[in-house]
């Protein structure tokens, strides 16, 4: 059994003539929280969409739990998209049913507990909710699956600091040592304390993949400062 939950080799994605991923090599160990960090347009979302099975790569290989991307990997991948795919007209209770139907690893009790703690009425429809609350509902759904790997694409973008704290707490609370969480973001200072490893992605290439504490010890600076240096415009 491999110690890696995700492995990819020379992963390439082109949109027409535009090269978005230029031959990425990456291995993600089990039981880690990994930050996928890069500026807008660096290829973060494309990479995640390929891993989640929503896009097909142009070239190279990617495996999750030693399997090619497909039905089997979708069953063990929990994905929080950058933009919601839930219908605004749905009530929270409908979204729960939706997840229960789709994913056999969905823990309904866990989801209901988390919603209750936030005083979210499950018969409310999504369109009546603020952006922050909607983000929280979606995160709760995604984190209530017992998946092997979670991909959270920009989970804290565009929400207020209190909602951000809640989201970070929810991630720590639901993390377990058998699962890996990949968080893509450009809001690094908010999230760097909960990361084990970071991957810097720049113009479709990986420029760094390292343990967070090692980076701090070796460079004497936070990930946020290092990021600002590496990606200076």
């Amino acid at each position: 059994m491999s110690e890696y939950i995700l492995e990819c080799g020379n992963l390439i994605k082109n949109y027409g003539n535009k090269k978005v991923l230029k031959g990425i090599n990456l291995s993600f160990a089990k039981g880690k929280i990994i930050g996928l960090l890069g500026p807008n347009g660096s290829g973060k979302t494309t990479f995640i969409k390929i891993a989640a099975g929503l896009l097909k790569q142009t070239g190279g290989e990617i495996k999750i739990d030693n399997k090619k991307i497909g039905i089997e990997t979708k069953a063990i991948v929990s994905y929080l998209p950058e933009r919601t795919y839930l219908e605004n007209s749905m009530r929270v209770v409908d979204t729960i049913k939706f997840f229960k139907d789709f994913y056999s690893d969905f823990d309904e009790v866990k989801a209901l507990n988390m919603l209750q703690k936030l005083n979210i009425n499950i018969s409310d429809s999504l369109k009546t909710m603020s952006k922050g609350t909607k983000e929280k509902v979606q995160l709760i759904l995604v984190m209530s699956r017992n998946a092997k790997i979670y991909f959270l694409d920009e989970p804290i973008a565009g929400v207020d600091p209190a909602a951000r704290d809640y989201i970070i707490n929810t991630i720590i609370n639901n993390y377990n040592e058998n699962s890996t969480i990949v968080i893509s973001t450009h809001l690094i200072s908010d999230i760097e304390n909960i990361l084990d490893e970071v991957v810097f992605i720049k113009n479709g290439e990986i420029t760094l993949h390292k343990n967070v504490d090692e980076i701090r010890e070796e460079n004497g600076k936070s990930i946020d400062s290092l990021f600002r240096e590496v990606f200076k415009c």
Partner: peptide, 14 residues
């Protein structure tokens, strides 16, 4: 470990 990680807002492995 988890409670402390949540309080400190850090990674549980750390």
């Amino acid at each position: 470990v988890r409670e402390l990680a949540v309080t400190a807002a850090v990674n549980p492995n750390t």
